[in-house]
């Protein structure tokens, strides 16, 4: 079997020109109604095209807005967000999919942006922490994080908020164990865990109490 040269089209795939020749001029002429299916077919042809290694046109839909970029295939989604779109809510902490600080939603599902390539994230709806508030109005979970002090340095917070937001969309009334399971992939070094748990459950309408008390030493026997 021939080893394909990666810079050329692999044998057997259909080139754009050949495809148009095949479907014929008549079909193209009557294009209006068929335009969409043709576009889809063309997209299929493009799909098997080899792109890169240099920068290629990539369109990312982030928080409802389309962005046209020129990125190398090796650029991760996290890198694209932070360093090409100036969307710095998602943080780079480990770059290995082990800590969750870069958690974004792709089609509503929490994923590690550092372990997704930007080029494979096209055609999806990407949501970052910047989308949670509506103008000045914080979302319920954001408000709860502030009220319960579920943040300290704040570096893990965007990631936790995305995991929590997705959880509450899937499961409006999670148990404490559901929350732990959903946020197992988010690491915090400052130790906000008890309050993260409390804030998420509070948003779901479940009050849990962490026993804390301030006692005046002078009142002790």
């Amino acid at each position: 079997m021939n080893k394909p040269d990666c810079s050329s089209k692999p044998s057997g795939s259909v080139s754009r020109r050949n495809f148009l020749k095949t479907i014929g001029t008549t079909a193209v002429a009557g294009a209006a109604a068929q335009a969409e299916s043709i576009a889809a077919e063309l997209q299929k042809v493009d799909a098997e095209k080899i792109q890169g290694p240099g920068p290629v046109p990539i369109t990312l839909t982030v928080n409802g807005k389309k962005h046209d970029l020129e990125l190398e295939p090796r650029v991760t989604l996290l890198d694209a967000l932070r360093n090409f779109l100036n969307s710095t809510g998602a943080k780079e902490v480990c770059d290995r999919g082990t800590c969750g600080a870069c958690t974004v939603l792709i089609d509503g599902k929490p994923v590690y942006a550092c372990m997704q390539l930007a080029i494979e994230s096209q055609g999806c709806s990407i949501t970052t922490v910047e989308a949670l508030a509506q103008g000045n109005r914080l979302s319920k979970i954001q408000q709860a994080f502030i009220e319960e002090d579920a943040l300290m340095c704040g570096y893990c917070t965007p990631g936790f908020l995305m995991s929590a937001t997705a959880l509450l969309q899937r499961q409006p009334k999670p148990t404490a164990d559901d929350v732990r399971h959903a946020c197992a992939g988010n690491v915090c070094r400052c130790g906000t865990h008890p309050r993260v748990l409390k804030a998420i459950l509070k948003t779901a309408g479940v009050e849990i109490t962490q026993k804390t008390e301030v006692i005046r030493y002078a009142d002790l026997a």
Partner: peptide
């Protein structure tokens, strides 16, 4: 409340 809470939770 932590006064830099809003800045941190909005990214």
């Amino acid at each position: 409340r932590r006064i830099d809470g809003p800045a941190k939770v909005t990214g």
